[in-house]
């Protein structure tokens, strides 16, 4: 028993220590900033109660950023999940040069994200972008459009970049999951005469449930924090059409140097994600029984 406890502590502690070392102190300190008027430009740094939160809730940008963050965190995740799952299923087949294709499928994830952002900005440029050339060639548009400068198209382009970048992640995780699913179970299902569709929904999906749950949660959390893909492409514009929390916090913390306000946004973000994740995990594990 003692041995088991030592084993448990010895295996979990190193991971917790690393996370605690890097994240805990800055996290606690940053959360405490949200109760102050810490501002580098005005030189203020004193206790301010919940003042930051009350100005936050009366700031119209807060609601714009909240909606944008939700749409851009969940929408591209769903699209990437479907495409990534499809890729994983196909790349799990016994096809020729399978490892080569798997390597190719991974490419969007291996190109450094900041280059991805610049690549798409370049491709969607009004005057030198290939997207306009192709769409005009196909007769789908009459004139070149400034895709990233129009309020109704910019969020879609940004969503596309997110999704494109995330497909390989889902492909890889689900492929690893598919490989650890046993052939026996599938054989047994076959003997029972299950159709491929039934096999997919009754055996593959439940077998991958844990991986699906945690990958989707993680991508939503990461999308919340994604700054690298969005900043070089739109800077949150036009106006605030693609301003997410990540962009807004960056602007508040690093352009306006309004650290207290940025920390307050961070606290709301933390609470929001915690609640979302908690209920999602509970809902998923609830359906297990």
């Amino acid at each position: 028993m003692m041995r088991e406890r030592a084993f448990l502590i010895g295996t979990i502690f190193p991971a917790l220590a690393v996370i605690g070392f890097v994240v805990l102190y800055p996290l606690v300190r940053s959360v405490s900033f949200s109760l102050t008027n810490y501002n580098l430009i005005f030189g203020t740094h004193s206790f301010d109660g919940l003042q930051q939160f009350s100005s936050l809730f009366s700031d119209p940008t807060f609601y714009t950023a909240l909606l944008n963050t939700l749409l851009l965190s969940i929408g591209p995740m769903l699209a990437a999940f479907v495409l990534g799952f499809a890729q994983a299923l196909v790349l799990n087949q016994a096809i020729r040069a399978r490892s080569f294709f798997r390597g190719l499928a991974l490419l969007p994830w291996v190109i450094p994200q900041v280059v991805v952002a610049y690549l798409f900005r370049f491709m969607f440029n009004q005057s030198v972008g290939v997207v306009n050339v192709v769409l005009k060639g196909l007769g789908l548009i009459a004139h070149s459009l400034p895709w990233l400068a129009l309020p109704h198209s910019a969020p879609w382009v940004v969503g596309l970049i997110y999704a494109w970048n995330e497909v390989p992640f889902f492909m890889l995780m689900l492929l690893a999951g598919l490989q650890s699913l046993s052939g026996d179970v599938l054989e047994a299902a076959l003997v029972d005469g299950a159709t491929p569709v039934k096999q997919f929904f009754y055996i593959i999906v439940p077998g991958l449930r844990r991986i699906i749950t945690i990958s989707t949660v993680l991508i939503v959390i990461w999308n919340f924090n994604n700054f690298t893909l969005i900043w070089p492409t739109t800077h949150g514009g036009p106006v605030n059409a693609t301003t997410t929390f990540a962009v807004w916090v960056y602007v508040q913390a690093f352009e306006n140097f309004n650290i207290g306000y940025a920390a307050a946004i961070g606290v709301i973000w933390l609470i929001f994600l915690l609640v979302l994740t908690f209920f999602y995990l509970r809902a998923v594990s609830g359906s297990e029984q």
Binding site: V23, P26, R29, S30, V31, W222, A253, G266
Partner: peptide, 24 residues
């Protein structure tokens, strides 16, 4: 709770964390 806490360390904007981490 511990598992959720581990995940929660990812749920804070890094732009704010970085300032404190730099000092540390």
């Amino acid at each position: 709770a511990l598992l959720l806490f581990i995940l929660a360390t990812q749920m804070f904007p890094s732009a704010v964390l970085l300032l404190s981490l730099y000092i540390l």
